[in-house]
Design a protein around this nucleic acid. Structure first.
Lengths: 309, 309
DNA sequence: TATCCTTACGGAATTCGTAAGCATG
DNA sequence: CATGCTTACGAATTCCGTAAGGATA
């Protein structure tokens, strides 16, 4: 048994049991992967993969049981390197963040600026993705930290902690009739064509729920993934926008007006996620402290130690 | 990084940093061990071991941090083999029990007989040791299951569960004056020379506590590790004995009388211990169910899954 | 001086890639 | 017939033991 075999097995699962892809991904040749896996199966005395003819089609039952432990072993070997790097004193390293547009654009810049000043030698990677992809990236190790509002729960492999709450608000072109409607209601808003986030993004579900609860059917004429696009089309006069409040910048967006929507939409919580059992370098912990001071030290060490994939 | 290097590191710690011993224990040569460790240190970029001149003297700080994860990796690789063996369907295998004389002699025989009937092909190893050794054997993997009354707690690496309660009683030669003393008190017992267990064995501490609580200083003339020896000397007339009740066999011990001591000594709980995070074969779980039916299935799976060394 | 670790060298074993063969969809 | 796994062979690398050297208690 060796680490290479375990890596091949893990990658085979991730790459949908295509050993050619595994070979490419791990800089090996396909016959090498094929043989390594077979040797591991021989040594353990069980078939790890289901095979139809010569093709692998899935995990066997023992394979699934083994995979769980294989994942943990590989995570731990990566942890060994991280721990060593931590002690080798160098403040060099890499920190990969996976996050959505909204966070990257409006919430993270200040923190990242602060972080870069503190750790100039750390290579910071910012990966923009949708919440589901973010979750996957945290779990498989491509990202050290995930930051997102939706779909970050429901995976035992991840530990999440709330960073801050926010809510949606309305943006309208300056001089719009809605500016004088007080209090603002879902009904009043639904009078106008609406531009807002794409499904599965930036708390969109809470917007839909708010209208449904009020018994109103909004006319969503355009959806976008980020507030910049939404603002652009509101500016053009295509309709009114519903965006995260923090995405409005009074200085920059002088042609628009923000109408507070705290009472209209359920609040959203932006959460930060780390892989359970993954060792985090000192600077990664520091980043978390900067961005999510609510995450207690106890929670953090628990996240790094606990290991129950 | 390879498994061999990790094994060498772990064994070096266990063997008090003597690489020559490590080499012998793991069927390798001393230069091989030496080089493997150095290569690992080079790869990780940190010194794992403290060195005074050419000798290893202990773990460095990073070494200690790494060791924790190394242990888990090695435990998990052993788990991989166990899981595979579990599924390869064979009911062959090995089950190593570590236990004290009292358990081996009086509590285990019935269970082991039953177990052997159910799993004739499993090689059963019974290792008699003192409670501290038993704890160590469970932790370092020499034993799959530890059974003992004292000193089985206080290690986060182990999960223990109570099996059954028992208490100490008095044995006297037939016709002894104590037979007619009712109720029996610590004071009455302390009138006679006492033969009982050695310190750190079979609940001895509870005996001492009972006398101390009663303000009596017993005259312990002889201590032994097992009840058979105690009974022998009671038979010879050296004094009265205090032994675990279950160690008295009315049929076999016809020259002796058992005087119940339930009201005199605090009860003892025999506990079973397994290594946290260690995968247990089906027959091992079955053994536990036979011997400690109080240990819930949930507790068992938790023990096998959780992994926080 | 005995114990214990390191370095140097050479052989053994393992690993891995190339090329050819064969099954699947 | 294109994709994907297997087998065969040979090269490169890695691993590991023996032998000699040097430090420590």
């Amino acid at each position: 048994m060796n680490f290479q075999q375990l890596r091949f097995v893990r990658e085979a699962v991730r790459r949908d049991f295509n050993l050619t892809e595994v070979a490419n991904a791990l800089y090996a040749t396909q016959p090498g992967v094929s043989r390594a896996i077979k040797e591991l199966e021989d040594e353990l005395g069980v078939e790890i993969f289901e095979r139809r003819g010569k093709r692998l089609t899935g995990l066997t039952e023992p394979g699934a049981a083994l995979l769980e432990v294989v994942e943990r072993v590989l995570l731990d070997t990566s942890n060994l390197r991280q721990i060593a790097a931590q002690f080798s004193g160098s403040d060099q390293g890499s920190l990969q963040l996976a996050t959505t547009h909204t966070q990257a654009r409006y919430a993270l810049p200040q923190v990242i600026k602060q972080f870069k000043a503190a750790y100039p030698k750390v290579h910071l990677g910012l990966h923009q993705a949708n919440p589901v992809q973010i979750a996957a990236m945290v779990i498989d190790g491509r990202a050290d930290i995930g930051i997102s509002t939706e779909a970050l729960d429901r995976f035992p492999e991840r530990i999440t902690s709330p960073c801050y709450d926010w809510h949606h608000s309305i943006i309208v072109p300056a001089g719009h009739p809605l500016e004088s409607v007080k209090p603002l209601t879902q009904e009043a808003i639904a009078e106008y064509p609406i531009i807002t986030y794409d499904e599965a993004f930036t708390g969109r579900s809470h917007i839909d729920e708010a209208f449904a609860a009020a018994g109103v059917a909004p006319d969503v004429v355009l959806t976008a993934i980020d507030a910049d696009v939404i603002k652009t089309y509101v500016d053009v006069g295509l309709g009114i926008g519903i965006i995260a409040s923090m995405a409005f910048d009074a200085t920059r967006d002088q042609t628009l007006r923000l109408l507070d929507g705290a009472h209209l939409f359920a609040s959203n919580t932006t959460r930060l996620a780390v892989r359970r059992g993954k060792f985090l370098r000192g600077y990664a912990l520091q980043f978390i402290r900067m961005f999510a001071p609510t995450m207690s030290e106890a929670e953090l060490t628990a996240a790094m130690r606990a290991n129950d994939p």
